[in-house]
Amino acid sequence: MSTAAKPRLAVYKFASCDGCQLSLLDCEDELLAVAGAVEIAYFVEARRQTLAGPYDITLVEGSVTTEEEIERIKEVRRQSRFLVAIGACATAGGIQSLRNWIDVNDYVNTVYATPEYIDTLATSKPISDYVEVDFELRGCPISKYQLLELVTSLLIGRLPHLPSHSVCQECKARGTVCVTVAQGIPCLGPVTLGGCWAICPAFNRGCYGCFGPVEDGNPIALGEQFMALGQTGAQVSRAFRGFNGYAPVFRQASEYFEDK
C-alpha cells in the first residue's frame, strides 16, 4: 500500500487526563503495525510533525468545558470523515461533570488562587452534545483492545465487535467470585458495560462503572440492593456519580437516590 493511500489518523484532546490517548501508545506490540497501516497525521502526544486536515479517522478525547473548545470541536468535525469519541470524558462528560450539579463558580473560587483568570462553561458535556459523533469507545480509560478492534474494523470495512454485555458476564467468563454475593461489597457491574475484563472484582473491589451504563440495565433496582446492603441514599448517589455520572442513565439514578 503506498503512503498516499493510507488513511489519515488524527488524535485530538479536550478536557481530559490524556489516559485514553496513552492507550494508543500502550499498544506496544501492535503500535508499529498501526503506524504502518495508517498515516499518523495529527497526534501531538506522539509526533512533533502535525499535518493539516482533512482526516479519515479522528479520535477525540476529553469533554467540552470552554467556549474555545466548542469552536475547536466544530472545526475538528469539519476536518474529519469518521469522528470517534474515546473515553468517559468524551462520551459522558467525565468526572469533571460533577460541576454540572452545582454552581461552577463555587468550584472555581475554591480551587484557583486567581479565579478571574478562569473562563469556563458552567458544564462539562460529551462531544456528542456539540457535534455529530460517528462512534463512541467507552471506558476510563478506554481499552486498547477495543481501540485496535475499531481501527482494524475501519481499515477492513466491517463493523467492530465490541461488548454489549454487563461487567458481570466478564466476571463469570473469567471465573471471578461475585464480590456482592460473597462479601456484600456494592458493585456497579450489573449495570455497567463490559470491556475491562471485570478487572476490579478480580481484585476484590466493586466495579466503579468506568465503561458507563449497559444498554437497558436496571440501575434503580441495583441501587435499592446497595441500600439493602447497608448503604445510604447519598452513598448510592455518589456511586453512580463517578466517571460516567453524567451519562443519562447514571445521572437519573444518582438523582433518584440523592434524597433517599
Binding site: H165, K172, P190, A221
Partner: peptide, 11 residues
C-alpha cells in the same frame, strides 16, 4: 422491576 438483566443466572 427487580431484575438487572445482568446475565449472572444464566452463566
Amino acid at each position: 422491576e427487580r431484575c438487572l438483566s445482568c446475565t449472572n443466572c444464566t452463566l
